[in-house]
Design a protein around this nucleic acid. Structure first.
Lengths: 121, 121
DNA sequence: TCCTTTTTTGGTGATATTGCCAAATATCTA
DNA sequence: TAGATATTTGGCAATATCACCAAAAAAGGA
């Protein structure tokens, strides 16, 4: 191949591969509407599984599995209280990260007439 | 179910569903190591397909399809120059968003280094 | 202990994603 | 026009993800 960058230049541009894989895993976990809805809710306060189940409107087992994935990714933490299990965000940075993407979806959402503001700091 | 939040409280907490779905789609697209590697590279400058193919070390067709997905998601733009096709970020906010997640990764990396530390002192 | 409620786990079928090959398309140059 | 290079597209097999159901755990109260 006869491309526009040299090999050493590419190596300099190449970001840390482990880091990229970890970040990609994190993004993949966030990239599901139910899980993202959970994360946005937990950004306000912690909720137990049945709260989140009611919010999402899916089977309890489905929500529980989503929460397991979020926990495995290190996005949420788990805390037992009697028969209830409460989940909360481990780091508010997740909310900030998602908020940063809002400029990109602003255009797409123009189609809908009823919409919350997407670009406020 | 007898949960800890009322229905109206839940509705207030519930974020805009269209918005969540769009964001989730965006995050899913970013949640693949090859695509994230492409995005990180494009954060520095634009590259043509063969550059990115060399970076990633996959088949050209594979990289081309990843770029199509990124373009469909509105993350990158396409520009033809002769036989080459150059891609660039549509919005630097993607880089910022990913950067926001690094605190979460750091914990994992520290966890790894701790384990390494323990396993070979 | 038995019963109830909450949550997790195992299993399954449907669907989606991924990466490669081969072929097609596009563009430049001789 | 023919050939070379760069990119995209179609197809396919392997794998992963998803949502539900049923059943198992976990914990509290009668």
């Amino acid at each position: 191949m006869d491309c526009s960058v040299t090999k050493s230049e590419m190596l300099n541009e190449m970001p840390n591969k482990d880091c990229i894989c970890e970040l990609a895993e994190l993004l993949k976990t966030l990239g599901h509407s139910s899980r993202l809805m959970i994360v946005e809710a937990l950004g306000k306060k912690s909720y137990c599984v049945c709260d989140l189940t009611a919010m999402i409107g899916a089977d309890t087992s489905t929500v529980s599995k989503h929460l397991s994935l979020l926990k495995a990714a290190g996005i949420v933490r788990r805390e037992k209280q009697g028969t209830h299990v409460y989940y909360s965000l481990t780091c508010p940075c997740v909310i900030d990260a998602v908020a940063q993407l809002k400029p990109l979806i602003k255009e797409k959402l123009q189609h809908y007439s009823h919409m919350i503001e997407v670009s406020n700091p």
